[in-house]
Amino acid sequence: MQLSEARHAFVTGGASGLGLGIADALASRGVRVTIADINDEALAAVLTTRGNSFRGVVLDTRDREGWQRAKAEAEAAFGPVDVLISNAGIAPNGKPFTEMDPESFDRIVAINLTGIYNGVAAFAADMAARGRGHIVLTSSQAGLVTTVPGVGAYSVAKFGVTALGEGLRTELAPQGVGVTVLFPGYVQTNLAANTQRVGGDIRKYSDVVMTSDVTPADVGEMVADGIEQDAAYVVTHKQVWPGVEKRMQAIKDACDYRLAR
């Protein structure tokens, strides 16, 4: 979809981090943007620094009735949504499955997978009926390969987002609606604070120095380009491929072994 033809984008987790980076990139291309976020204070602060092409709505992406209210408010103000960025999420809890509190597992899946799906449920059918639009779902490098202990529940959710995006892309292509799955690596955001805000545990990185030269603004530009190219995937960091290649090779080896039997 050419963003010059898009009128309205709806971005969850839009008051900070990747969501705000994407929202700014879309707005710079002339798209009016509704940013949805659970953090009402951050939302209000952002809106004071943006122009009339931005509006905000408080939304917990787990709340399906809240999605319907947010959609009605957004479209009453800016018209039908042409671009959905279903992005809001929380961080890994850092615990192995054997030590994980079941409530923590449920929270991670509810926000990082079901919350992403709830955006699809709210907007995808209308896009299909109009025969136009684009949906971006935020997965993670952990939705491509899991190699680090303590991110298991997070990877379960993010692999689910990957599958959701791939299936949705196949289903919506005949209706003229594009779907992109975003696989961000580490980007400096306030994800940890947002995770704690909803009662979540966060992974402790006491023995790891987390740095990145990729910014939310960089990711916003990548996503905007991906929408215009109708890209199936957007990967933000160059170093992800070796791990993915190792996983894919193991799967290929298993398939080759079965074919040889």
Results as ranks from 00 to 15, higher is better:
Ala45Arg: 11
Val214Tyr: 05
Ser212Tyr: 03
Thr170Glu: 13
Val240Thr: 11
Glu171Arg: 11
Asp207Met: 09
Gly178Gln: 07
Ala125Gly: 11
Ala23His: 14
Arg62Phe: 06
Gly89Ile: 05
Gly17Tyr: 00
Leu168Arg: 14
Pro174Ile: 13
Thr34Phe: 05
Val161Asp: 00
Asp218Ala: 05
Asp256His: 12
Ala74His: 08
Gly226Met: 09
Lys238Cys: 03
Ile90Cys: 08
Leu182Ser: 01
Ser139Val: 00
Ile111Gln: 03
Val240Gln: 03
Ser4Trp: 07
Leu84Gly: 01
Gln188Ile: 05
Lys204Pro: 01
Lys158Pro: 00
Val46Met: 07
Asp253Glu: 15
Ala42Ser: 10
Val81Phe: 06
Gly243Gln: 15
Thr146Trp: 02
Lys246Val: 13
Ala128Tyr: 09
Val46Gly: 04
Ala77Cys: 04
Phe159Tyr: 05
Gly176Lys: 12
Gly89Ser: 03
Ile116Tyr: 00
Gly89Arg: 02
Ser212Met: 12
Ala110Leu: 06
Asp218Arg: 02
Pro216Asp: 07
Lys246Asp: 09
Ala157Gln: 00
Ala163Lys: 13
Gly165Tyr: 07
Glu99Gly: 14
Val187Arg: 01
Val109Ala: 01
Gly152Gln: 00
Arg132Val: 09
Ala122Gln: 03
Leu20Phe: 15
Ser53Arg: 07
Asn39Tyr: 05
Phe10Ser: 08
Ala44Pro: 03
Lys252Arg: 12
Cys255Gly: 10
Gln196Gly: 14
Val136Trp: 07
Asp126Val: 12
Phe54Trp: 06
Thr195Tyr: 11
Ile202Thr: 02
Met1Leu: 12
Val136Ser: 07
Pro102Ser: 11
Pro184Gly: 08
Gly226Ala: 04
Gln68Tyr: 11
Gln196Val: 10
Ala122Arg: 08
Ala129Leu: 12
Asn118Glu: 09
Pro242Phe: 14
His237Met: 05
Thr61Trp: 06
Asp213Phe: 11
Leu172Asn: 10
Trp67Ala: 02
Phe105Thr: 01
Pro149Asp: 01
Gln68His: 13
Tyr233Val: 10
